[in-house]
Amino acid sequence: MKRFQILEPRTVAEASRMLQEHGDAARIYAGGTELLLVLKERLLHYDYLVNIKTIPGLGGIDWDQEAGEVRIGALATHREIERSPVIAEYVPLLAEVEKKVANVRVRNVGTLAGNLCFAEPHADPGTVLLLHDARVVLETATERRELPLAEFFIDALTVALEPGEILTEIRVPRTPPGAGAAYTKFGHLERPMVGVGVLLQAREGTIIDARVAVGCAGPTPRRMPEAEEILRGAALARVEEQLAAAGEAAAAHCDAVDDLHGTAEYKRHLVQVLVGRVARQALQRIKPIA
């Protein structure tokens, strides 16, 4: 790696000012699992790494009872999330998926926030968070805004962070009571090729909420409203008949691209198959509300 300097801010405001001051010569550094790889490859170079791990209070995973959502601090690692009782209780699918991210060494060091900010398309957590309508909190020295995760992802490796902005927390509304949620990934390389998540909620024998998200196939993970529409309102007893159509709708809208992992055509096929398979698993996990 080429030489850089590590800066150690004590507050978010200080970190933001460092980023503003150094512009493109500085980058936020937390786990470093993605950043250090590109620095070693010399694909990028920064004169300054702003180590946000020196900022007290940026970590932690808490349940916000009033909002009915989980707050995941920017410094929370994949491993902390996978083992968190709060996540297991309120967003169990996230814990399940985090257990299978990369390997234990990456999960020990890498943060969820870093995973989202790096926006490498071949990743799992973004898809699961989209299923839960997660939001990200972005802060500078003077401003604080919240953005739906769906608007945070702009393109492969591109997110909506403005200069000097830092992702400080991820807010994840709890899995709706009684809902069934599932996620499956498929791939033959180290990172996944296609990831599909489905969340279904039923009341009085009818699907009242259907969420489908597809990741890895295209430049960003995305919800699939066309597939969701087909499932929403379906009778629980007959939803099985709609799964093929929902799969086709998702395959048609998932923006699959050719890459090292597979052709767009192959990925569309996988999306079509996986939507049905994952939806069946989600259905098995539903606890109908009277």
Binding site: G32, L36, R105, V109
Partner: peptide, 8 residues
């Protein structure tokens, strides 16, 4: 456990 190759 960490990967010492990608750990400062």
């Amino acid at each position: 456990p960490v990967s010492a190759c990608t750990y400062l």
